[in-house]
Design a protein around this nucleic acid. Structure first.
Lengths: 152, 152
DNA sequence: TCCGCTTACTTGACTGGTTCCAGAAAAGGG
DNA sequence: CCCTTTTCTGGAACCAGTCAAGTAAGCGGA
């Protein structure tokens, strides 16, 4: 587990590399998302406030937009949920989401996957295939089993 | 192209088969989505009002929920868009979305696609793999070409 | 054919996530 | 260290979708 300082330094370096100014809220947002990936705007805001004190909701949204624009963050919008953000960018990995508790887990793209090119492209110029796996995480499966037994 | 009456009769039959009451708003919603697939709630409401007169927004939302629950409709929520609905259910097909104009096209699942089972399931019990292809439709590609030439 | 139970629809107020606006503050190049 | 550009603040607005209570209508049974 890296220290907060290491995360902040790394975040600052990434901001500079992207040609963006280094500000406390931006660093805070990046650190928050290193600590808790797939967080939504509100969760990020709470994390940032914990470490920095008062930060406006607006600033958080602006930062999330700016960093997404600069490709330092990736924004995902699972069905039935608000927008979530992650710092893992550039590898087009996919996500697996639990229908029970909503937890999101990264899934590596299985490589040269044949189904990532549609059977009939209808003339489309496809640049991304987004795959979301829906199911139940181990913990929620356990809950299901327990409930099944209780209910006979 | 089937007539409105054929669509209405068919819609009523599907409602009865699902054990749901046949009401004008419900039939109207099904017909609207046969006519224009992947429409959002507001678009559906406008279609229904055109054919039936006044129908409350609330009724449209209720009907969309009830029919989705009964699996007569499928709800999709593409990133950056409000929820959309389609009458094609039960075959887990996928979607291709144009980044330019937002048009949504159905794409058949390519069958026993290996990538539809994640490489590492992390103990998840996966029941659905949702695939969304992002790109540009032929019309928007033409627009791009035209703009490129104009701008040198 | 009518009755009445149950479900569906209407109206209106409201929430939660997100964005827009105008002005104040701060980062960084020169 | 100042000036310009960019970012942050606070407040108000926006929209899809929800909640609650009362009215209307479908449909099974008499």
């Amino acid at each position: 587990m890296p220290t907060d300082e290491q995360l902040r330094d790394d975040a600052a370096a990434r901001l500079r590399a992207a040609g963006l100014r280094v500000t406390a809220p931006r660093v805070g947002v990046l650190v928050a998302l290193e600590r808790e990936s797939h967080a939504d705007a509100d969760t990020v805001a709470r994390h940032v406030r914990t470490s920095l004190g008062a930060v406006s909701t607006q600033a958080v949204y602006d930062v999330l937009h700016a960093l997404t624009e600069a490709q330092l963050l990736r924004r995902i919008e699972p069905a039935g949920s608000t927008a979530r953000y992650e710092t893992r960018v550039g590898d087009n990995h996919h996500h697996m989401i639990c229908r029970g508790c909503g937890v999101i887990v990264d899934v590596d793209c299985s490589g040269a996957a044949p189904c990532l090119v549609p059977a009939h492209a209808h003339g489309f110029d496809v640049d991304e295939a987004e795959v979301t796996f829906w199911g139940r995480c181990p913990a929620c499966q356990n809950d299901d089993d327990t409930r099944d037994k209780e209910n006979g």
